[in-house]
């Protein structure tokens, strides 16, 4: 990630392939994991009960995929402006997000077609890539 990314994302340059979006650093707290699980109405015990998570082979509770999806969605709209609309989002999970870790979301514009852009997103934590994905975002007529 380069510092140019922030300037591109926040500046007036039109999105172009190769453009990097400014990263977003998120502390993965136990509260975030539980709040995200409940806000997404996911009551699987592995997302709020550490003891139950351990019995299922996990060292601790871990973030559910709906929260990851929501955070990636937030990252994209944070970076691409208040008028943009998410059209498609596809994510794949890798290393789990456990409490105490930090996830850094980063994005790269891979294609631009009119006011529709494709973005490649990676969320990296201390264990590796928690999430990788691609998104299609419509920037909106007054984007930027």
């Amino acid at each position: 990630m380069t510092t140019d990314a922030a300037r591109d994302a926040d500046g007036t340059t039109a999105p172009h392939p190769g453009q990097e979006l400014a990263p977003l650093t998120l502390p993965v707290t136990r509260t975030l994991i539980v709040a995200g699980a409940l806000a997404s109405r996911d009551y699987q015990d592995v997302h709020h009960d550490a003891e139950a998570a351990r019995e299922k082979g996990s060292p601790d509770v871990f973030m559910n995929i709906l929260t990851t999806n929501g955070l990636v969605g937030r990252y994209l709209t944070d970076r691409l402006g208040p008028r943009c609309v998410l059209r498609r989002l596809a994510i794949r999970l890798g290393a789990p997000n456990y409490p105490g870790d930090t996830m850094v979301l980063s994005g790269t514009v891979t294609a631009v077609d009119g006011d529709v852009v494709e973005v490649r997103v990676v969320g990296a934590n201390g264990l590796g890539h928690h999430v990788t994905g691609t998104a299609t975002v419509q920037l909106g007529t007054a984007a930027r």
Binding site: L26, L32, A35, G36, L38, A39, S40, R41, L66, T67, N69, G70, L71, V72, G73, R74, T77, D78, P82, V85, L86, L89
Partner: peptide, 27 residues
């Protein structure tokens, strides 16, 4: 509640003509 958990302050999700965050689809 979703926006609070995600820290999402997108203006489209608030106000009289609010829409839901698209990523809430499954929720």
């Amino acid at each position: 509640h979703w926006c609070e958990a995600m820290g999402d302050a997108h203006p489209a999700y608030r106000g009289p003509d609010a829409t839901a965050p698209p990523t809430m689809l499954q929720a």
